[in-house]
Computed example of a mutant assay.
Amino acid sequence: MSSPTTTRLRIWDLPTRLFHWSLATSVIALIVTANIGGNAMEWHLRLGHVVLALLLFRVVWGLVGGHWSRFATFIPGPVRLLRHLRGQGRPADKAGHNPLGALSVLAMLGILGLQVGTGLVSDDEIAFAGPLVRFVSSDTIAWATNWHKGWGQWLLWTVIGLHLAAIVFYSVVRRDKLVPAMLHGDKVGLPAELPASRDGLANWTSALLFAAACAVMAYWVWTRAAF
């Protein structure tokens, strides 16, 4: 129940929530298709471009999206991070991503971006070649292929495992319902003076336009293999 000093606040706007669950679904599908191999690699390639479009969208939305989705809001500076580690976090740290959670998000986006980038110039010399292999040297192809199939996968598994472990910890120990908040977008018990994220028709329309532009860019990268 809300009190006079706390309120139910819109934290995650609809575009951010759709991005989150679309990315989670796509990454799971990428892992599955990579392990199946064979004809499933065609879907692996398609899904890689879906993730590329999603990552491009998240970069744009991190600049112009809802308040708590913006990089300027949740990327912590040294002082804020140290304060959080000392248990002296401010109320705003409980609204969106806390400082450690923000670093986790950045790490995951960065590793996914590296996986997508190396996948675009990978070649297993059997049945799969990225659409941009003809634009790079053989040494680059060899390095990208080894990274994509080796350390890149292990790092991705690590950040995913840490992400899931953190969700369990905060849900069970801290009683912070992170998953429901990413479904309906709201958190309760937050100070009333904190700003809410914009989440209306104008916001959705701009997000749709940005998403369409990012999809076109990802498709353009895909078609580079045909020219």
Rank of each mutant, 00 (worst) to 15 (best):
G65N: 07
A226G: 00
V51N: 01
A142F: 09
R175H: 15
P15V: 13
Q115E: 15
A107W: 01
H67Q: 13
N35C: 02
Q88V: 06
L162N: 08
A211P: 14
T5K: 12
L155N: 04
V60W: 03
A166D: 08
D176I: 04
G150K: 08
L112H: 00
F74C: 10
V168P: 06
M1Y: 08
L82N: 11
V51I: 14
G38P: 00
L114A: 15
D124V: 10
R80S: 15
A211R: 08
L178F: 05
A207H: 06
T158F: 13
P191W: 08
R46Y: 10
P131N: 14
T16W: 09
T6I: 01
D13G: 04
A165S: 12
A72K: 15
V136T: 08
G77M: 02
R86Q: 15
S197F: 06
L30Y: 03
G38T: 06
T7W: 11
W222T: 04
T118D: 02
V173N: 02
G87K: 07
F74Y: 13
M1I: 09
A40V: 03
L52E: 12
E42W: 07
A212Y: 09
V172W: 13
R10H: 07
W151Q: 00
G96I: 02
T205Q: 08
N98V: 02
L209F: 06
G65A: 14
W68P: 12
F227G: 12
L30G: 07
S2K: 06
W12R: 00
K94R: 11
I111S: 01
G77Y: 07
T16H: 05
T140Q: 11
A225W: 02
W151E: 04
L14W: 03
V188M: 07
H184F: 03
L85E: 05
L194M: 02
A196N: 09
S137C: 15
H20P: 04
L45T: 11
W143Q: 06
L164S: 08
T16M: 12
W157E: 01
S104L: 11
I28R: 03
R198N: 13
A102E: 03
H20S: 05
P131I: 00
A127G: 12
P99T: 10
Q115A: 04
M217L: 15
L23Y: 00
W43Y: 11
P99K: 07
M1V: 13
D13V: 01
A142C: 05
P191V: 07
A181G: 04
R58Q: 11
V32S: 05
P99M: 09
G119L: 10
G110V: 14
A165P: 04
A192H: 03
L56A: 10
W154T: 09
A129M: 13
H49Q: 05
N146S: 14
F128S: 04
G110H: 14
S206F: 11
V50F: 07
V133L: 09
L112R: 00
R17A: 04
S171T: 14
A196G: 15
A202Y: 03
F135V: 01
A196Y: 01
V133T: 15
L82F: 10
D186N: 14
L82E: 02
L103T: 09
L208I: 11
I167V: 15
F57I: 10
D186C: 09
M108S: 02
T16R: 06
N35T: 01
S2N: 13
H20R: 09
V216F: 14
M1S: 07
T7S: 13
M182F: 12
